[in-house]
Write a protein that binds this DNA or RNA. Sequence first.
DNA 1: CTGAAAGCGCTTACAG
DNA 2: CTGAAAGCGCTTACAG
Lengths: 352, 352
Amino acid sequence: MTNNEASIKRARPKRIGLKDVALEAGVDVSTVSRILGGRASLYAEETCRKVQDAAAALHYRPNATARGMATGSTRMVGVTIPGTGYCGRIIEGINKALLEHGHLMLHAWNPDHFVPADDPTQKRIIHELVERQVDGVILRVGSEEFEQTYFEEIWQRGIPMIVVDREMALFKTDFVGTDDVAIGADAARHLLGLGHRRLLFVGEKEIVSTCRLREQGFRDVVSEAPDAACRKVELDLETAVVEDLAPALEGEGHPTGVFCYSDRMVPIFYETARKLGLDIPGDISVVGCGNLSWGKMLAPALSTFEQHPEKIGRKAAELYLERVAEGEQARPAPKIIRVAAELMVRGSTARV
Amino acid sequence: MTNNEASIKRARPKRIGLKDVALEAGVDVSTVSRILGGRASLYAEETCRKVQDAAAALHYRPNATARGMATGSTRMVGVTIPGTGYCGRIIEGINKALLEHGHLMLHAWNPDHFVPADDPTQKRIIHELVERQVDGVILRVGSEEFEQTYFEEIWQRGIPMIVVDREMALFKTDFVGTDDVAIGADAARHLLGLGHRRLLFVGEKEIVSTCRLREQGFRDVVSEAPDAACRKVELDLETAVVEDLAPALEGEGHPTGVFCYSDRMVPIFYETARKLGLDIPGDISVVGCGNLSWGKMLAPALSTFEQHPEKIGRKAAELYLERVAEGEQARPAPKIIRVAAELMVRGSTARV
DNA sequence: CTGAAAGCGCTTACAG
DNA sequence: CTGAAAGCGCTTACAG
């Protein structure tokens, strides 16, 4: 089974091309191209057989680069999304959906956080993607705060752009994400339903749409409960320490129901609660968002929202494929797709 | 700042090519190609200026697809590695190193676990990568148990292959990973140093090199301590339940020092210990490997090895670049690079 | 049912 | 110091 011959001859052999197959089969390259390219029905059965046999015998693989030049489509999508954790699962979804349609991801990380508008690395990434003639780009912005002008090059050239997870203010693009307002609303309903009336929203200093919209949904619902009130604290995750959060949790009349807009705020929350001697969920309930892998290993396990990131990735890929299929015509109005999230109730939330 | 014009005219404009720049500058395309391609020193200063001005005015971006056809190098590496967690950090390292050299990842997931030798999806992925003329492939195998024959296509064509993280038995390729034997040995030394003599190695049923080599390093060191003994249990992570591990931890003379070859075995270990009423680290110490993100949030925080996956990815990318630079000559002997891991001592290990 | 030819957008000997 | 031409490996009107 182990191929020892192969491990000896190592010089790279000349690649087999359409020409070689044509020669072997005794036909023209255009004939081979059409038969192997799905137009076999045009040809005599025997010609098809000869060509297929020759291609198989020579282990022919088409050169997608050359095909891309000829057809104008590389069947590659540029993906600028950080690859770990939650985003990694989005990418997994993209990858699977694309593969079923013969497309591949040209994957260039971009940071999870704020990047200056003219960051040279980001510009480089965009240049690289454009130069490689990607059919479209699926991207995620680090922050809403500063406009991501380095994406302008893509937009100007009319290359389809699908934004995922966080909204982008600069261009009116297609978007696939989670239903953030609904998440905020559901978090509020869950806490109110458990009897909590003194609520706290834990947001992030960095301005991202997910935080803004979840707060909006949360407040909308809280404001409908006449006896409930919502406070708010914003953390800078890069630097956050217990002292940043403690004032919001201390003293008489401290909040008993907390919504951390992202699971990423939860570890510092647990730590602060412990330091203050607050029992979760005895003294204070907390619900997060994202269903990150470690949430169920916390003590108590975290109540949080599963956002189905693979599904988000899959939808983004499908939208990209749709845009590519539309071709060069004037682009239609942007589509906004929001995938519903689900609250996973675990041990961190309880009756007041 | 917001470009409203751009959001109105959406039809895709014709791409600007070398020809357009040449026309604009009043020179031949070959002149433009050479000046923009780094051979500017050949030309008169004024010609260079004219060409550069024209390129800038037209926002010219070279077509990497066409360049790839002409030069035989696409400056793309195929990456078949799952993208989440630990592997995601490898990919991050690859990505950063490549970007500095103008290469990009064509990223196709492959599963973390065992895949049958002739899995059609895997074969498809390899075909796609080969067709797109990648300059090389960085890959990780799911399991050592069955030979990954779907990689044969790459090997046969002499495309550089860099294997990361887990060794591959089928081909003698370049490899970049962690120093697994040293990790096993260090884990044993740590536990022995804390006075533990009844040791347990927790491995995985699936046959991967990391597990095999860590066990080897662990046993080598344990066997040198005359009064120490090592037992072993193997779990199938897909199905593992408390009952699978409990027998190894129960009863008089149960092990007091445990090495879980991967952090992935740790949650089931904590759960089992809790069910059996064993205090960590009071009754039993445990050390993991991988420094996965949630380890420090466990109670107690997990002692584990940081493997520096970004560094592994970076080294793999550098090795790939080296192989590409060597060109089509007969390939030299494979290189094996092992990045040292570091034990992070936290709360899960203590004196016996 | 099949072939000859042009073209995709570059690079690179070769010539001058 | 610069240009004209061939070639990379395909696809696709066009012709027969």
